[in-house]
Write a protein that binds this DNA or RNA. Structure first.
Lengths: 122, 122
DNA sequence: CTGTATCCCTATGGATACTG
DNA sequence: CAGTATCCATAGGGATACAG
């Protein structure tokens, strides 16, 4: 028995999974929920610059993929909590690494970009 | 001295880095180059379903970010090789983990999606 | 072989306002 | 508080054909 799924196969469903992981805001939501559940407004404040529309769409998609749970605690005003499922927490491991890589290598990337645009000038 | 860069800060340049990492085809190119340099056509064959246009744009962007090198070996027909730089190889670590997560959890995600769409039916 | 050049299209996301 | 509802703009990417 070899590998069941392979990213490099054109029609492999792992591609749709990868596409969801790579979606603009998924990595933000996953990292934001690292330390426990959050409410809609908390997430919005934590992930700055995200619009309610984008946040809603990201949350719905992640919920459909079983990455997070939505708990409506009722009351008025409403109280809804979002939390990572076990599956979502397992995704936290690689995505935290991605986040850390991005934060760690900002200077390298910026330097490379600057040099690339400088070379364009000639 | 605290963390220099933080994904969650609205204007942090790490966001542009993350955006590049999350770009549609970056993860494919990085993983494809894991075991050494490849030529344009090799990459295109390896990453199935990618158009030459998308591949070119991805390669140029990664090159500008210092993630890969492009070596023109001349000749006719032309011979160009793409390889990960040291920086690109460091990105390989987290992105290989992402790839493996995606391939490993296809059944979980597909099951969750099926259940979600089944619930919608009511 | 290694790309460019077009054309087109739709999905993503921003801005804004509003509702239960 | 937790979203919906619109409208809109743009960039990314697909299809196809062609060039050095």
């Amino acid at each position: 028995m070899g590998k069941a799924y392979n990213i490099m196969a054109a029609t492999c469903p792992s591609r749709t999974v990868l596409h969801r992981i790579g979606a603009r805001w998924t990595v933000f939501v996953v990292n934001a929920l690292e330390h426990g559940p959050m409410r809609f407004t908390e997430l919005k404040a934590h992930i700055r610059e995200i619009t309610p529309k984008a946040l809603t769409e990201t949350l719905r998609a992640m919920q459909a993929d079983g990455l997070l749970s939505r708990t409506d605690l009722g009351g008025n005003p409403p109280h809804v909590e979002y939390a990572l499922t076990d599956l979502g927490r397992s995704l936290l491991v690689p995505l935290r690494a991605v986040r850390q890589w991005a934060e760690a290598h900002v200077p390298d990337i910026l330097a490379a970009r600057e040099q690339a645009s400088a070379e364009d000038a000639y």
